[in-house]
């Protein structure tokens, strides 16, 4: 376990280093060494924040994904396949609409409330419909998400806010600057909470009766899980924008290799999450250099290929919905 974590950390450092020196303005490690003040300025105002934002986003969304998968006992749910992300976006729109000039923090709080409400609604919906095939759960999530998303777009058109919201409809790291991304560190806090309660979440993922037998408060744990996932999702949506698939793909890859015990795999999920977004972002930046493709597009393409692979691999590791 530690060996793998060390390998992952080293690759993260190397790729992170590469990421710091890719960009329109040419900065080399030598410039930093020579303390060229203009270049240092760019380096610390834009490059470092961007790298930190990438790592926090990847890690955060992967953690949000694995938590949602645990509490819903379904390997295919994630912020983007259980409508959480769409609710978070809707929340941002409401914040812009009713609190013009709202700070990032206000937007985040309102967005979290909406994400939480929407995800709870989704969980209630699931317990009402009792699906036989686990694959229907994310389908319903995506449907619900699309409905919410359409409402968001409609309202945005109506109030002439479409320009304003397009920035967080598609995730993009190009806008990350010092002072505009720090909220993402909340993701690290969430990671710590998840690590502390890892066993609880694994027990909950086995089922309600199973949890009750072991003295785990099922409903409370589910609610806490949804709160954690909602906070992470909203923070990412507010600062970066929506990025699909990460929350679903990363935990599933790790699961295939390491099993479902969160206590064992949570660090790897976090690290691989950061690594995945980092790789996607490097692609985004070099493919049509000096221009950039939004990260949501790259992540969407790479993500859907991996998603297809996981699906075609068979339903062997898909949990049945309770």
């Amino acid at each position: 376990m530690f060996k793998r974590i060390i390998i992952l950390s080293i690759s993260l450092i190397i790729l992170g280093g590469i990421s710091l020196f890719i960009g329109v303005s040419d900065i080399t490690p030598l410039d930093i060494f020579q303390a060229d003040s203009d270049k240092l300025h760019i380096f610390f105002i834009s490059r470092v924040p961007r790298l930190m934002a990438i790592l926090c986003t990847g890690m955060g969304l992967s953690i949000a994904g694995v938590i949602m998968q645990s509490i819903m006992s379904n390997n295919f749910v994630s912020p983007s396949t259980a409508s959480t992300m769409d609710w978070a976006k809707f929340g941002v729109l409401i914040a812009i609409l009713f609190f013009p000039g709202a700070t990032l923090k206000t937007k985040m709080i309102i967005s979290t409330l909406f994400a939480f409400f929407g995800s709870m609604l989704f969980v209630q919906l699931l317990s009402l419909i009792k699906l036989k095939d686990p694959i229907f759960t994310p389908l319903i999530g995506i449907m619900l998400g699309n409905v919410v998303s359409s409402v968001t777009t409609y309202i945005a058109y109506k109030y002439d806010l479409i320009q304003n919201i397009s920035s967080w409809l598609q995730g993009n790291f190009a806008m990350v600057l010092q002072g505009r991304y720090e909220l993402l560190y909340i993701g690290v806090l969430m990671l710590i909470i998840v690590v502390l309660f890892a066993t609880k979440f694994t027990i909950v993922s086995i089922g309600e009766d199973f949890s009750k037998n072991l003295g785990v408060n099922y409903k409370l744990t589910v609610t806490i899980g949804i709160i954690i996932a909602s906070i992470i999702t909203s923070v990412v949506v507010v600062t970066i924008g929506s990025i699909p698939f990460i929350g679903m793909i990363v935990p599933n890859i790790i699961r295939i290799i390491r099993g479902d015990n969160l206590k064992n795999n949570i660090w790897e999920i976090a690290l691989v999450g950061g690594l995945f977004v980092l790789v996607c972002d490097i692609f985004s930046r070099i493919i049509i250099y000096p221009f950039e493709i939004p990260i949501s597009v790259t992540a969407g393409i790479i993500g859907s290929i991996i998603f297809l692979y996981i699906l075609l691999r068979g339903n062997k590791h898909v949990k049945k919905t309770a």
Binding site: V216, D260, N261, H317, K319, K320
Partner: peptide, 20 residues
């Protein structure tokens, strides 16, 4: 009806018994 479609080792499952 304890379906267990979860990837845990036998020992990990049994150790959950100690959770309380």
């Amino acid at each position: 009806s304890n379906y267990l479609n979860i990837k845990l080792t036998v020992r990990e499952l049994i150790s959950f018994g100690r959770y309380p």
